[in-house]
Design a protein around this nucleic acid. Structure first.
Length: 457
DNA sequence: CCTCAAGGCCAG
DNA sequence: CTGGCCTTGAGG
């Protein structure tokens, strides 16, 4: 019987001959163009709460009294609830320094699952939310809670025994933020570099698909035949899908120095524990691209069937996807796949969708806008070098240092590109951690209609 | 000890 | 349902 590690070793051995015609591994190590004075982390974390209103928070209907109200709150230097502009409480609630009432509203909504039933009364989905109007539209208020960074996963369910929690999800994140040393600038050059590395990460994904479809043609045909015989079982598609993504993740991360310098044991441990987070992150970003939304929706809803029973069609599909994701003009292709019906519960679908939304809300300024791929790239590295799990690592300090390196990069980037909102954006980004894993879980539930069998490996 | 963030209670 | 106020427990 093969163990997880045996299988991983097999995959790793298989990678030895892989040519590396992409960016050199060390290119992920950004070198600042110029040394700038380092601002102390404590100064940042003790700074005044952000009072600036972000564009995305601004309400579209601009009545005068509302603007006055906002202006007044900005002037009075009290902490302000980002949702309704009321006076905020002293503490963070579910990840946001909100007012008591928005905290209560969010808690009740999530705990009783009311939020799944909210609808915007006007249907415009952009009702203004102020201290006075906040009761009017639950849907818009709840969305604003999410946009401001509140996380549903911090609301404990009844089965978590109601005690103030043993696991305090925010504390590790805050600790990380505090320990980060900052230098301030993130040059355009580095942004370009980060974007090209992101493309590199993506192309590893597509290379894995090609490997699945071309190198192992024999295997793939067996897979196709099995699909026919079982009526295109979605679980098999999902398995293959997850498997290729796993390989891509391994391919990419094993090609960077930070990972290559670790012991095989640590590498395997990191990959097996953190792959779900990476998968959830990338899946959420991919499936949120408007042009791909429809395809993925269908994929999740129904699974799909290879109409021509040829690998070719799927290669084309993936090329199409890759072109979209890499921002190149898609070829004029008509995709010929049929969707095969299978059912997931409405509740599960909603949970999955809202998790994907949660991940994306931290990566985009609006539902129309594209994700900030620099954040995606850096976050994926921060996730990969996470070490907060039970299994003991051989070189934990080094792994923590690596994670911190990427955290500092992220922080620097945010300070350069989001200025006053950097701090809020950072905590917003770090909040994505948990939902990413949950996206992986719900993705599998949705496809398998059950838990993923036997863990990750 | 004190702080923080989560849950609980209940008049309105 | 809302939102003000109280209790709890981990961690600094």
């Amino acid at each position: 019987m093969e163990t997880s590690f045996d299988i991983l070793k097999f995959i790793c051995d298989d990678l030895v001959g892989l040519e590396k015609d992409f960016l050199s591994p060390s290119s992920i190590d950004f070198v600042p163009q110029a040394q700038v004075p380092i601002e102390s982390a404590s100064a940042l974390s003790n700074g005044r709460p952000e009072t600036q209103i972000s564009p995305s928070m601004q309400v579209s209907s601009s009545s005068d009294d509302l603007e006055e109200e906002i202006a007044r709150r900005m002037e009075s230097r009290e902490p302000q609830c980002p949702i309704c502009y009321d006076v905020a409480g002293k503490h963070f609630y579910y990840g946001v320094q909100a007012c008591i009432s928005c905290r209560g509203f969010f808690q009740r909504s999530v705990r009783n699952r009311f939020h799944l039933k909210f609808k915007c009364g006007k249907g415009t989905q952009n009702c203004s939310i102020t201290a006075r109007s906040r009761k009017n539209c639950k849907w818009c208020r709840f969305q604003k809670c999410l946009r401001s960074g509140m996380k549903t996963c911090y609301v404990m369910t009844h089965d978590q025994s109601g005690l103030p929690n043993k696991t305090k999800p925010l504390l590790p994140i805050k600790a990380m933020v505090k320990t980060a040393n900052l230098s301030q600038t993130f040059t355009e050059h580095e942004v370009d570099k980060a974007l090209s590395i992101y493309k590199n990460l993506l192309s590893f994904g597509y290379r894995s698909y090609y490997q699945l479809f071309s190198k192992n043609e024999q295997e793939f045909m067996t897979f196709l035949r099995a699909l026919n015989e079982t009526g295109g079982s979605p679980s098999m598609i999902s398995e293959a899908f997850t498997e290729t993504n796993k390989q891509a993740t391994i391919n990419y991360f094993f090609s960077i120095d930070d990972m290559a310098s670790l012991s095989p044991f640590d590498r395997m441990t990191l990959i097996s524990h953190n792959f779900p987070g990476i998968f959830g992150l990338l899946w959420s970003v991919y499936s949120y691209t408007p042009d791909l939304c429809k395809f993925y929706e269908n994929f999740l809803e129904h699974g799909y069937e290879f109409r021509h029973h040829e690998p070719e069609i799927d290669k084309i599909l993936l090329v199409f996807e890759a072109n979209q994701l890499l921002g190149e003009k898609p070829k004029n292709l008509s995709i010929d796949v049929t969707f095969r019906s299978h059912s997931a519960t409405q509740d599960l679908i909603q949970r999955h969708d809202s998790l994907v939304h949660e991940v994306n809300s931290g990566l985009r300024e609006s539902t129309q806008g594209s994700a900030d791929y620099v954040i995606v790239l850096l976050l994926s590295h921060i996730i990969m070098f996470a070490s907060e799990f039970a299994v003991s690592l051989q070189d934990k300090p080094k792994i923590q240092a690596t994670q911190e390196k990427y955290l500092v990069l992220l922080h620097r980037y945010l300070r350069t590109h989001y200025q006053g909102r950097a701090r809020a954006k950072l905590s917003e980004t770090m909040m994505i951690f948990e939902p990413c894993r949950q996206v992986f879980e719900t993705f599998h539930e949705r496809i398998f209609k059950a838990r993923p069998p036997g863990g990750i490996f």
